[in-house]
Design a binder for these strands. Structure first.
Lengths: 209, 209
DNA sequence: TAAACCATCCCCCACTTGGGGTAAAAATCA
DNA sequence: TGATTTTTACCCCAAGTGGGGGATGGTTTA
């Protein structure tokens, strides 16, 4: 079974180049190459590609918007951005919109094919510089304040669920423990983090993550 | 000029294995192999490695703590975590502490060497599954929800204070309004943001920022 | 002008949470 | 092995919160 790939790229030269690269791989099949996000969206449901190569700069709808749209009905489809932009702003917006990978256009053909295979297998292919920028984002948001450091794994688990807005009952149900036990955890967490309420703990927790 | 590499790994077998792999690379030189974070820290200033391979589970100080310590005096040193742990929790803590890469221990030798070169050149080597988990983090914090958009200025003000962990009384005092009024705002905010509680609203609010 | 929205305040009631405990089984460490 | 930490669970009580109302002016807008 071949991996089905779709290309969305407005520059005709580059688009045909991508299609040709795909043709050289015996384990892949190009099921469509479009010049705009709009035209890609009208065909994507029928074609059901496994992986989509998406340019960011497109006429009309941007590649990032297109990713958002695709994600609404195909949460598991693999989408790799292929673009010249290396600014953190676009990278993060694309990733937040739901992209699974991010390659710069200068990537050599074999790296492109390897990236498609990687994405298909559940990886997240990124060009070297892109990966570094992503990692740097974590350095920025910094060493998680030591306040949350000495929480036990279970306590951290509770704190995470708390951060998602669940009440004790629900957390208890999810973790298969009683809500009273959850209360105990929260009390311990509040003590360890030197805050008065679960809400402050969540605020502190999120600002550190 | 060879790339200077240091190894921090408590398991003797694996440590010597890593040293041997490094010995096979003509462009690298192992300048130290330590069994604990503490001993590594006492020698790292003299050895001045370009890249450090760091285990997470270590006796005494954890690998993550060790990374934090190294970052205090060597912000530019490349540190690659080499570990069996693939849980998001540890990955993010390590990255936040300042790690530049994250490999699982099952990585083959040539991938390890390539990762060291990648890190040295300014990349951020990650095993396939690790990269996916990092990317998923961005999917989680999602496309900045616009749900908080149609809040009135006053409501936003209340939401901000709420996010800092204040209770209604305190917010009322700060804004010179009654706590009952604050309650009304929070109720409206919850309605507008389609959530059940102030905590969910805060979670949504912060994750969108 | 009427409708819509905003900011402000109040009531009731059931549920949830914070703060204070106690305690035992399980896992981990020394 | 013994000591410590982690995980689990329960108690009481006072305070805070969520959900449902209603009410008064003021401003904007259709």
């Amino acid at each position: 079974m071949k991996t089905l790939v779709m290309v969305v790229e407005d520059d005709r030269g580059l688009r045909e180049q991508l299609v040709q690269i795909l043709a050289t791989a015996s384990d892949m099949e190009c099921v469509g190459a479009f010049a705009s996000g709009e035209s890609a969206l009208t065909h994507i449901s029928k074609k059901q590609p496994d992986v989509v190569l998406m340019d960011i700069r497109l006429p009309g709808m941007s590649g990032i918007e297109c990713v958002s749209e695709i994600r609404k009905f195909a949460p598991a489809m693999q989408i790799i951005m292929v673009t010249i932009y290396e600014d953190s702003e676009r990278i993060f917006r694309a990733l937040k919109a739901g992209a699974n990978g991010y390659l710069v256009k200068s990537s050599p053909p074999d790296q492109l094919l390897e990236a498609i295979r990687d994405a298909y297998k559940g990886g997240a292919p990124m060009s070297s510089h892109i990966a570094r920028k992503v990692i740097q984002h974590f350095h920025m948001i910094g060493p998680s304040l030591k306040e949350a450091d000495n929480l036990s794994p279970r306590e951290r688990e509770v704190l995470d669920l708390l951060s998602l807005g669940f009440i004790y009952k629900e957390i208890g149900a999810k973790l298969n423990i009683g809500s009273e036990t959850v209360r105990t955890y929260v009390k311990n967490i509040c003590q360890k983090m030197h805050v008065r309420s679960r809400l402050e703990a969540v605020a502190k927790h999120r600002s550190a993550s």
